[in-house]
């Protein structure tokens, strides 16, 4: 079930077929499998555009990794692959309605491999994998589909086979954790955007996943809501993979950053090294985050303090 794999952390170039490094051999020796491992993952949109192109990466248990890249780089698609939703659809019969004359349809049916906690993602163990990976979507309205917040948070536990009474208790605990217990019986549309976002997180936490995949967690939040949400994410112990354009949050939360563009890993390494590399970032539609610029300024020119009036 577990094939040979290469570890690609701490490297900034990933396209070349580099030989296994010393780090790889170390990780081969350790018994615990990586939290997330993608091997040659490919995916095409129905219209034929390549979303993911032989993508490889490995994330160890407990890591907090940022996924950055321009719009359309394949970040969201990658996150969806983590719980096997997309490959399952790709092999589904409905594709024929669209891709019957597509010469590359076969390559789409061979979507590479994803391992979650050592378990290969396929149709058979999809439910098991989805239990381990918690996906938080960008738009809370996509995720909060139930009539009340409480029902929504209990949705996962009920599907995992909990009795309604147990699911209710668990849901209330999770809502308590994101500070929404008072709103439990309200319909989602009556909550503020920040509260809905936290309710989404509660709904995912209720499934007790070991991996959290967050898509743009801070998008559209006001500064206070963003701060709360960042602190909330920080307090969670799961392995985290965060796709975001909010590079200041990335600097704050994630020690490691993976830059992807056009479905390929461009750079993978320590956040501060990658996000301070201005030529690399601008080549891929990103900017050096303000926090790093300010930091560099204050450390290199300590005499200059005219930013704030004294």
């Amino acid at each position: 079930m577990i094939g040979p794999w290469r570890k690609r952390t701490q490297k900034t170039e990933s396209q070349s077929e580099a030989p296994a490094s010393a780090l790889d051999q170390n990780s081969q020796l350790t018994a615990s499998p990586a939290s997330i491992r993608l091997h040659d993952l490919c995916y095409q949109y129905p219209d034929g555009r390549q979303a993911l192109d032989h993508l490889r990466l490995t994330i160890q248990a407990g890591e907090c990794v940022a996924l950055v890249g321009p719009n359309g780089a394949g970040k969201s698609t990658l996150l969806l692959h983590l719980n096997g939703i997309l490959p399952g659809r790709t092999t589904g019969g409905a594709l024929h309605s669209h891709g019957a004359d597509d010469p590359q349809a076969t390559s789409r049916r061979n979507p590479g491999q994803v391992w979650i906690e050592g378990l290969q993602v396929n149709t058979a163990n999809g439910p098991q994998v989805r239990r381990m990976v918690g996906l938080v979507f960008q738009d809370p309205d996509d995720q909060l589909f139930s009539p009340t917040i409480l029902e929504d948070v209990a949705f996962g536990p009920l599907n995992l086979g909990l009795k309604p009474a147990e699911a209710r208790t668990l849901a209330l605990q999770c809502l308590e954790r994101v500070n929404l217990a008072a709103e439990a019986h309200r319909p989602p549309q009556h909550l503020s955007f920040g509260a809905r976002k936290r309710a989404c997180l509660a709904g995912v936490l209720a499934c007790n996943p070991s991996i959290l995949a967050l898509d743009e967690p801070t998008a559209n939040l006001d500064p206070r809501g963003r701060r709360r949400f960042i602190e909330l994410i920080r307090s969670l112990s799961a392995t985290k993979l965060i796709a975001s354009h909010d590079l200041d949050m990335v600097v704050e939360l994630c020690p490691r950053t993976i830059l992807i563009d056009q479905g390929q890993v461009i750079a993978d390494g320590p956040t501060r090294a990658i996000l301070a590399n201005e030529p690399l970032l601008s080549a891929h539609g990103l900017e050096v985050p303000l926090s790093l610029i300010l930091e560099a300024r204050t450390s290199s020119e300590p005499a200059e303090k005219p930013i704030m009036p004294a």
Partner: peptide, 15 residues
């Protein structure tokens, strides 16, 4: 022209 889905979700599985 070729369709361009705004979300990266595969074509429908509803017969």
């Amino acid at each position: 022209r070729l369709p361009r889905p705004s979300v990266p979700i595969e074509a429908g599985s509803h017969g």
